[in-house]
């Protein structure tokens, strides 16, 4: 049952920052990240904007080449594959983007959008039209939409089309990069429910990226919290929400406004002091990246040495000197 589908090991992605003539530094967008996603589960990735969530997702799919590290998909390292193997990987691992307005080619009809990957991968279909209609119906659209262009659809509908395109390939693994953050809450609920249903039906494995903790909690079985290119806490979603270990996770949780006035009043009193903003990933702080904002930072330790990611309780990892021995 708990069979890993994807294992990311020490993944790094540095983007060079170009000066006038030469590279003057690196944006360490993803800096030594390791985690595992089991088959059929949803792994949530949260963090504030710019912390490297999207880059992690894109690097795993090799839409950008990793600087170093291993991506083991189905027991095979995919960082070096090419040709036919790559093509097969592309079919099995897919991505859905945040912005529904630019993720569909404005010059392709829905039919073309969905059939293109199918044809490219040589997936046999008897009646293409029938095939596409079936897919559209499975995402809540219908025959009427077959030969329309993207601009004729709303944001929510476009995300459905994007989803139908993924389904056509019958992938195993899908990176969902904030698939609902451009949508309104009522539409968001529709899409989230549909993603859950599809997962149940087809056994998809998701990497669910979001900055919205409520959404991540709703979707994920396990999750990771990212800060400045690093994973600071990994574990089952339930556990992280019940018992957040890393001070950054605690800060994030206490910063979310809860849609319940009683609870809000109650929490107001015992809220953790939320301070500062994430610094630039070009020159991240020494030691633990979070120490300048951390109320528990120990001088001489947290600002010098990077904490390792250690298992504190079963399957619950945290990178913080509060829990590790130096």
């Amino acid at each position: 049952m708990m069979e890993p589908l994807l294992k990311v090991e020490n993944l790094k992605k540095y983007f060079p920052v170009r000066g006038l003539l030469r590279t003057i530094g690196y944006v360490k967008a993803v800096d030594d990240v390791s985690f595992t996603i089991n088959r059929g589960e949803t792994f949530g990735l949260v963090g504030e904007s710019g912390c490297g969530k999207t880059t992690t997702g894109r690097t795993i799919l090799r839409l950008v080449e990793p600087t170093s590290g291993k991506i083991i998909f189905n027991g095979k390292d995919v960082t070096k594959i090419r040709g036919e193997e790559m093509k097969e990987f592309r079919r099995r691992a897919q991505i859905m983007f945040q912005d529904p307005y630019s993720s569909l080619n404005p010059r392709q009809t829905v039919f073309e959008v969905i059939m293109e990957p199918v044809r490219f991968h040589g997936i046999p279909v008897d009646d293409p039209e029938e095939f596409v209609i079936k897919l559209l119906e499975s995402v809540g659209l219908n025959e009427m939409h077959l030969y329309r262009y993207p601009h004729e659809f709303s944001g929510g509908q476009r995300q459905r089309i994007a989803l139908a395109r993924l389904l056509a390939l019958k992938p195993e693994f899908i990176v969902l990069d904030e698939p609902t953050s451009a949508l309104d809450v009522s539409v968001q609920a529709n899409i989230l429910n549909m993603l859950k249903d599809l997962q149940k039906k087809y056994g998809f494995t998701y990497l669910f990226i979001s900055h919205d903790l409520g959404v991540v909690k709703y979707m994920s079985h396990r999750m990771g919290v990212m800060y400045l290119g690093k994973l600071v806490e990994v574990g089952p979603a339930e556990k992280i929400f019940e018992n957040p270990l890393h001070p950054y996770t605690q800060m994030l949780l206490s910063a979310i406004p809860v849609p319940d006035p009683d609870l809000a009043r109650e929490l107001k009193a015992k809220r953790m002091n939320v301070e500062g903003e994430p610094p630039s990933p070009i020159n991240p702080p020494q030691g633990c990246h979070f120490h300048p904002r951390c109320p528990f930072a120990k001088a001489g330790l947290c600002d010098k040495k990077e904490p390792p990611l250690i298992e504190v309780e079963k399957d619950h990892y945290v990178a913080c000197w509060l829990y590790a021995k130096s």
Binding site: L63, K87, I95, S102, S103, L104, N105, F120, H121, A162
Partner: peptide
């Protein structure tokens, strides 16, 4: 830079 280009890459085109 548009996402549909990246989507096309993700398909493997």
């Amino acid at each position: 830079e548009k996402l549909y280009v990246e989507a096309a890459k993700a398909i493997g085109l």
